[in-house]
């Protein structure tokens, strides 16, 4: 963990959600460590990684929470939605069910996340074009009608992964700035921002500042 990682202007909490096996963990490891594994283990509960990017001259640190996809874990994982300012809702372009379930995931977010969370629909595994079961047009139309941004990615061949994360983070930043995000200096944010954003599953009301940002 590089120390420089701790210098940032903004800290955004983002969640990765979607059906089991669509590639959430690989998107995360590709973005944060440039790693990909065909045989990564299933995520149990939640996992976490961070990466900082530059956006309009500011350093934005993304704290990304990767969640288990199976229904049974919903009760545990949904607790982590609170305080998240962004969500990457991932489906697998070769698995129609995973796209059909997007609607259910949106409802999850509606029930458990902040109302103004920025959501991006991500069609992963775009390297498997020959097995494509969800057309880009369908997904794009769905995204538009639900007010989501949309991108197709491949964690395997590393296409659009960087773009997906960058685009949602800058969207969050722009929306936040628009709402006159009050603090911009590193020193103000650095020491306590981590705690500001941490969401513990049991009730803890001291974490709402982040929501104000956006």
């Amino acid at each position: 963990m590089a120390r420089s990682d701790d210098e940032y202007d903004y800290l955004f909490k983002v969640v990765l959600i979607g059906d089991a096996g669509v590639g959430k963990s690989n998107l995360l490891s590709r973005f944060t460590r440039n790693e990909f594994s065909l045989e990564s283990k299933s995520t149990i509960g939640v996992e976490f990684a961070t990466r900082s990017i530059q956006c309009e001259g500011k350093i934005i640190k993304a704290q990304i929470w990767d969640t288990a996809g199976q229904e049974r874990y919903r009760a545990i994982t949904s607790a982590y939605y609170r305080g998240a300012v962004g969500a990457l809702l991932v489906y697998d372009i070769t698995k129609k069910d995973s796209f059909d379930n997007v609607q259910r995931w949106l409802k999850e977010l509606k029930d458990h996340a902040d109302a103004n969370i920025v959501i991006m629909l991500v069609g992963n595994k775009s390297d498997l074009q020959h097995l494509k079961a969800v057309t880009t047009d369908d997904a794009s139309a769905f995204a538009e009608s639900n007010g989501l941004s949309f991108i197709e990615t491949s964690a395997l061949d590393n296409s659009n992964v960087e773009e997906a994360f960058r685009s949602i983070l800058s969207e969050i930043y722009r929306l936040g700035s628009k709402k006159a995000l009050e603090k911009g200096s590193t020193s103000n944010f650095a020491p306590n921002a981590t705690q500001t954003i941490v969401i513990n599953p049991p009730a803890d009301e001291g974490k709402t500042e982040k929501a104000k940002c956006c």
């Binding site: 149990i44 509960g45 939640v46 545990i76 981590t194 705690q195 941490v198 513990n200 599953p201 049991p202």
Partner: peptide, 11 residues
């Protein structure tokens, strides 16, 4: 540090 046991010990 704001770390809940559930966060790591769940797994």
């Amino acid at each position: 540090e704001g770390l809940d046991f559930l966060q790591f010990a769940f797994r």
